[in-house]
């Protein structure tokens, strides 16, 4: 009894932080989403019932950004998981210079996204860009392409930039996960004549599952809220082809000063994220775990 009271005291600072930085803003958003608060009301909140939600329901532009962000999230996180797993498996084996390779692999993750985005703009530039230069030298392109100037290639370019930046994060988590798997399991299964693929399929993957779940969940939440890369690289263009939910919501808040509506969009996106998390849990998180 006494020790549990002490535990609460130790938890108190953390709970305070969660209350102040997570619960309070969410509740505030929910309240705000039922009001009109913008320039016309001189920023005084006026109760508006469900008007903002009705508006959001008919805002086809918003739903386009939701769909686009979902496609982005699934594609980017999927690629990151595959590449991250491959990189983690490679870095798990000992070879000369492994320490250096492990450190180097983390560099993209450490660099600020907006600075990277500026770099990518120049890489994809049609006149000075290194990508066009390489492809033309390799004979794959006859004339330079403005990669960020077409809806499809601009979207792919943003995905590529995101994959390049965040694959190291998955590599790091998965590598840590790999190191918790006892080596005896591999030795024993080798004695029983298991192939490398069988070992991967029946030892590595199941035991890595909890880590994969956490890593993918984390990345999904982050990826659904992607803002900085898009904001700098394309500004949502061309023709709105790369505008994400976060960018559109930000514009409603900060640029249009339409707080009630922005809050409604945020509440809706939070709901979608909750569904996404539930789906992930059903797909990956449930079932066997280390314990």
């Amino acid at each position: 009894m006494k020790s549990s009271r002490a535990a609460w005291w130790f938890l108190a600072p953390l709970l305070c932080l969660v209350a102040v930085f997570a619960i309070y803003p969410l509740v505030r958003m929910l309240v705000l989403s039922f009001t009109t608060q913008n320039l016309e009301t001189q920023f005084a909140p006026v109760f508006a019932g469900a008007a903002n939600y009705q508006r959001a329901w008919h805002d086809s532009h918003f739903w386009e950004t939701v769909l686009r962000t979902l496609v982005f999230t699934v594609t980017a996180v999927g690629l990151e998981l595959l590449l991250g797993l491959a990189a983690a498996l490679a870095l798990h084996h000992s070879f000369v210079g492994r320490g250096l390779a492990r450190t180097a692999a983390l560099v993209p993750w450490v660099l600020p996204s907006s600075a990277l985005a500026l770099g990518w703009i120049w890489i994809f530039n049609d006149q000075f860009g290194v990508l066009n230069d390489l492809l033309q030298r390799g004979g794959l392109l006859s004339s330079p392409v403005a990669w960020l100037g077409h809806p499809g290639s601009a979207f792919a370019a943003v995905i590529l930039a995101d994959v390049w930046k965040t694959t190291p994060f998955l590599t790091l988590l998965l590598l840590a996960g790999l190191q918790t798997i006892p080596t005896e399991l591999y030795a024993a299964s080798a004695l029983d004549g298991a192939s490398r693929w069988q070992q991967f399929r029946h030892i590595t993957l199941p035991l890595l599952r909890p880590v994969i779940f956490v890593a993918v969940l984390f990345r999904t939440l982050q990826s659904f809220g992607i803002f900085d890369l898009v904001y700098v690289m394309t500004g949502g263009g061309p023709g709105g082809a790369t505008e994400t939910v976060a960018l559109y919501t930000y514009r409603n808040f900060m640029r249009y000063l339409d707080f009630g509506y922005g809050a409604a969009l945020l509440v809706i996106s939070s709901g979608i994220l909750a569904l996404l998390t539930a789906a992930l849990w059903l797909l990956v998180g449930r079932g066997r775990s280390l314990s």
Partner: peptide, 19 residues
């Protein structure tokens, strides 16, 4: 800001052959 965003989006769509 909203008026400008509307214009940018549509003009950009036309310039890149989407419309």
């Amino acid at each position: 800001a909203r008026a400008s965003d509307i214009l940018q989006r549509q003009v950009s769509a036309a310039l890149t052959g989407q419309k």
